[in-house]
Design a protein around this nucleic acid. Structure first.
Lengths: 362, 362
DNA sequence: TTGAAAGCGCTACCAT
DNA sequence: ATGGTAGCGCTTTCAA
């Protein structure tokens, strides 16, 4: 149980020196094929693993990568992104003998502190930077800190850090087009926290899409929390000329918005079409099932981890562009009711499409 | 940026030897008050942090604790527990100079492998064991592995590992009593994955509560996923004598169950009362707002982290019992409609209670 | 109370 | 291609 096996044991048993074992392990040149094979076999027999502390002491590496999640307690529980992102990232790290070190903080100050701590204590070799802000302080701070980092966002202003990005704009175009095709002309957008770049990009694209169609955009700012999603929805529906469709910056807000509509006795989607983003599994299991844009958080995680590992090992890594977001059409969007038909009692009507029968636009 | 400051720098500047600095840092006896003070001041001035790799090489510690989350990709996204649990745990670990190492796996085999890897590679000093199974293999495996661990579960069969537990039974009693008080006699339970101890405990208590009241229990097995929650709900409602109230093993299943009911044109809660468990934030923002039992995942995280740190440092730590789960009464539970009244059109009726106005039973 | 020195397990360099 | 050896930064003896 207590691993007392060291590189010396392996060296002795294989009849070579420690140095050679080390070279063989890190498959470096200068080891004969047969020696290498023998060494690796012996290591395996003995169940030997190099001690990362000892390695790190020589190489000044931690063999660990850091993810700092900044979320308010009320958003984190409901966040459809991080758990899956971590799963994707961690799977890749494990293949590379690395480990994921996680920190969860409530605000930007605590986040900067966490970067500094993990870095000063030499706990990690690099960072994943998520939820990029517009003019993000962290980019500069990480520059000072001097640790490699990959950024999830748009390839701007990242001071040469590799960027993982996905074109969400294309999905928003599809979504708006989908609603317009159904006959909507008064479409609203409930934003996420627009201090975040991805929320801002979504808003900008929404505005552009409205503009291109000569529609007056309706916008309510929120922050990705269901609570704010509900508040924004109330405000929109209380407006003098309420929208016939609402696009939310994420699925939890959309679900909260649906609840508000239901509570007012509106029939969905006849009286109001609703769409989310960052498509989460739960969206396929609410009533009506939620039209949304997919996001594949595990894919983000894998790409980010591969890039960060490569950045650390090779000193550089190319940006990665993930496939465009795709529209997932479900039952929460439909043609708007004619003015006279509003507030119809519910029941009957369309059968709803379940998640297992999602229609993905390609 | 590149931390080249070592214990030697501190020793030199403070005019003492490395050894003394080390003693002072770990506040061990044998250092004069003034020397200690001076050393710590100098260390602070220099911004020195001991290198965990170097420390670990001497002490055979990793100064890191491991959490391995076993969840299928479809459950993890929606899981209201882990993100908040990690946040709670990590906050405590940071105070103790420790770090949280995270792994996400899909099944039990991969989980055991992850324990072995993290242990063999000496990445962590101990583990958090969650989702305890009945006769959990991991307990034995961890015994072999020989790393300290704390278990989230019921204090049985844990071979002397400290246990963090919360009495969920009390909450279930309250919940059943609440429904019975409203007039329900046909109450169903949609279970979580009953291989997990907490799902089993909930089921057992539900059965006991029914038994105590002479009610025939109705049970549908599921696995915590919204999909299974929906399937189970269909089956229950298609039964020859459908329940008037359904208690789900977690909130995502309850939300999926609500959707099934809505889709059938049932009016909630008049035609069917619905309750969840593991109360998540989102439950306060669906329609109707979801009656549930709270769970305070961050509290679990803090308690578990404190216990594990103590176990490692002192060699032993007492079990912790968290406060009983409490009923959160919201709008999804109400008196059952009289037979004749079923399938009333919705709208009007009760105003729903929002999350901000939850009623907590004490 | 303090200093000096010997490891901890590995990598990396200099020989051969 | 291989062996020997000097560190990496800390903790922990053992002397003084």
């Amino acid at each position: 149980m207590d691993q007392k096996i060291t590189i010396d044991d392996v060296a002795k048993r294989a009849g070579v020196s420690k140095g050679l074992v080390s070279l063989a392990l890190n498959d470096r040149p200068g080891v004969s094929a047969e020696a290498k094979q023998r060494i690796l076999r012996v290591a395996d027999e003995l169940g030997w693993h190099p001690d990362p502390a000892a390695r790190g002491l020589s190489t000044r590496r931690a063999y660990a990568l850091g993810l700092i999640v900044r979320r308010s307690p009320h958003v984190i529980e409901v966040d459809p992104f991080f758990a899956a992102f971590m799963a994707g990232a961690e799977a890749v790290l494990a293949e590379h003998g690395q480990v994921l070190v996680l920190s969860v903080v409530a605000d930007v100050d605590a986040e900067l502190q966490a970067y500094r701590r993990l870095s000063a204590e030499r706990r990690v070799d690099g960072f994943f930077v998520t939820d990029l802000l517009e003019n993000d302080h962290r980019i500069d701070a990480l520059g000072d800190i001097g640790k490699p980092a990959v950024v999830l966002g748009r390839p701007d202003n990242t001071h040469g850090m590799p960027v993982i990005s996905r074109d969400y704009s294309a999905g928003i175009s599809q979504l708006v087009a989908h609603l317009v095709d159904l006959g909507h002309r008064r479409i609203a957008h409930v934003t996420g926290n627009v201090a975040m770049q991805h929320a801002r990009i979504r808003l900008d694209r929404f505005l552009a899409e409205c503009d291109a169609r000569g529609m007056e955009p309706i916008v309510a700012e929120a922050d990705f929390s269901p609570e704010q999603g509900a508040v924004a929805t109330q405000a929109l529906l209380d407006g003098r000329n309420p929208p016939t469709a609402i696009i939310y910056g994420n699925d939890p807000m959309a679900i909260a918005g649906m609840a508000v509509a239901h509570e007012r006795g509106l029939s969905l989607p006849a009286d109001l079409s609703i769409a989310g983003m960052d498509g989460s599994d739960i969206g396929g299991w609410v009533y009506p099932t939620l039209t949304t844009l997919d996001n594949d958080p595990a894919g983000w995680g894998r790409a980010a981890a591969e890039t960060l590992v490569r950045l650390i090992e090779d000193g550089a890594a190319p940006d990665v562009t993930l496939p465009d977001a795709e529209l997932i059409r479900r039952a929460s969007t439909a043609a708007p009711a004619q003015p006279g038909e509003r507030r119809t009692p519910r029941g009957g009507g369309d059968t709803q499409q379940h998640a297992t029968t999602d229609t993905k636009e390609t």
